[in-house]
Write a protein that binds this DNA or RNA. Structure first.
Lengths: 334, 334
DNA sequence: TTGAAAGCGCTAACAG
DNA sequence: CTGTTAGCGCTTTCAA
């Protein structure tokens, strides 16, 4: 590592002169500035980030805590966050909570010792189930800002969400407008805040439609169990199903495959709508219609909010930004 | 942030006493140690990471540079790296090169100023195509260790790879053993080191088989163009195809869908083998047979290698670790 | 058994 | 225009 001291020695000036020169201080002569900069460039001098942080009490780094990178939604959010953060000169330290409360607590703890200027996070499933958010409040109390996204909690901090209720409400209305009479909702995220909201949107849409006589059917599939079996079972016990709304990221694809295998004509006999950003899910045939979450916008918004917050730490009002969704009709809807 | 100074003031002792007490120094009386620790716990004291780093010249942080988080292989590798690193008390700063040389250079540059103790990276496509690795050598010259994985380059540093050649050689041999006579290779990664190796494995297997009369057929699909069209086209121009080896992460799924749609019976008429770890790709029906990359092992190995390197910086010999692959036969092979 | 002082690399008063 | 000094939070001699 090249340090200011080394530059100073080589140039026979003081460390502070070098420092000022590199920062284009008015105090330093043009000539000196040039000499300093030349040598710095020549030796590939890089200011030591740790020293800078220690001095300024700023790290130019965010902690990003996500439940699961293998979920395409979070992978894309991470991508968006990294992209925007790096554009704005910030680095990100990534932690994966693996849906576990303890890992989430740990990550927050480990990074809250001056490692990061703030956090961007989406809450682990266990945390939501247990509704245990003390570890998050603890950070907030220390005046370290947090921006929550997607899976949020009732805390006073900035948030970025989508209109989960509205999105599945609209999707359900679309299925109704196709004249569907047996619309089933499939979910592997019933425990999550977003899962509940999305389910409610579906229920509301059915309820409001006076022509719709059937009781709502909600199938809870379980990531750990056999998703495929549950879905096959759905077709057995509900042979008249003609509409499926999958509110998690993957079950829509499985439903499509199973439906085709059972001999359903999609979308003639059966419409399917999934929930996700455009991604590998559209590698189906016909292509899955989805509610698009605009994940890049979500990620970008979290970074913007966090940087805003850093720039005016005092304010006590917090903002919740809602990113629009789109119903994208592809091949699995009429 | 609570600091040693604050603890010292409250306890009416010196900062150094507090420091030693927290580090269980023999020099300090049991009594003092206890008092110090109690207060530290009570105030939730956390040693400032930046100060520690500055002092020790160690960051307990790795820089991880991957080409693309949306690729399931890299997402999983990142997951494995984060998991093992965190288990060993390290944090990771994640950068996504987005397959771009410039972003890769930038990331290395930005983090090589004392931000990390070392790097774990997989090389961007552009970097491999241009075969431009000066930016990597520059870091190595500064004695900052780098562990390359999957997409490696001819540099003296530690590496973790799979036996790409052998894996597709074996897979091709399997297809031959099924009696397949028209085996096509599909790739969207022809530019990459691993793509070339995998292609060579396929070619070698065909060449060695004296009963196999057909010339090899290699289809280069292009991520930016219409993968689906290229594959449909393959079935048009090669109606006799009865074996497909897809050496990238996704085209196998597309091939399966298209084949089924064309009326091929899989695996009776046509066998398909994809290349990837178990993942969403098995959400097909029949399930895709794949060459499994054991991505968790790959990620774990990179961390182990890097930590080893940190512990004995002097050695000049570098190790290349090859992680075994497995051919996993599921529903798309006989 | 405790404390004072130096120093990691940097910036910013303040002095010259 | 340049240098001296102090200090960010911590560890570590060395001295008391």
């Amino acid at each position: 590592m090249v340090t200011l001291k080394q530059l100073a020695e080589q140039l026979n000036v003081s460390v502070s002169t070098v420092s000022k020169a590199l920062n284009n201080s008015e105090e330093i002569s043009k000539d000196t500035i040039q000499r300093v900069k030349e040598l710095a460039k020549h030796l590939n001098y890089q200011p030591n980030r740790m020293a800078l942080s220690l001095k300024s009490n700023k790290t130019k780094t965010f902690g990003v805590i996500i439940p699961n990178v293998l979920n395409h939604f979070f992978a894309k959010a991470l991508y968006a966050i990294e992209k925007e953060a790096s554009r704005q000169g910030f680095s990100i330290i990534t932690c994966v909570s693996n849906e576990l409360l303890e890992k989430e607590e740990q990550s927050l703890q480990v990074l809250s010792n001056g490692s990061v200027d703030g956090f961007i996070m989406s809450i682990a499933e266990e945390t939501q189930v247990k509704n245990s958010t003390d570890h998050i409040s603890l950070i907030l109390d220390q005046d370290i800002p947090i921006v929550l996204f997607d899976r949020v909690a009732d805390l006073s901090c900035d948030k970025v969400i989508i209109d989960d209720f509205g999105a599945s409400y609209e999707a359900t209305k679309h299925l109704l407008s196709e004249g569907r009479k047996h619309i089933v909702l499939i979910s592997d995220i019933e425990e999550l805040s977003v899962g509940k909201l999305r389910t409610n949107g579906y229920l509301k849409a059915l309820e409001e439609n006076i022509d719709y006589k059937q009781p709502p059917i909600v199938i809870h599939v379980n990531k750990d169990n056999d998703v495929e079996a549950s879905i096959e079972n759905l077709f057995m016990s509900n042979p008249k199903v003609d509409g499926i709304l999958s509110i998690d990221n993957t079950s829509g694809v499985v439903a499509l495959h199973k439906a085709l295998k059972k001999g359903f004509k999609v979308p003639e006999d059966l419409s399917i709508i999934g929930f996700s950003d455009e991604n590998v899910l559209v590698f189906t045939d016909p292509k899955l219609s989805t509610i698009s979450q605009h994940t890049m916008d979500i990620g970008k918004a979290t970074v913007e909010l966090l940087i805003d917050r850093l720039n005016k730490k005092n304010t006590t009002t917090h903002v919740t930004k809602t990113i629009k969704t789109n119903l994208i009709l592809r091949g699995t809807t009429k």
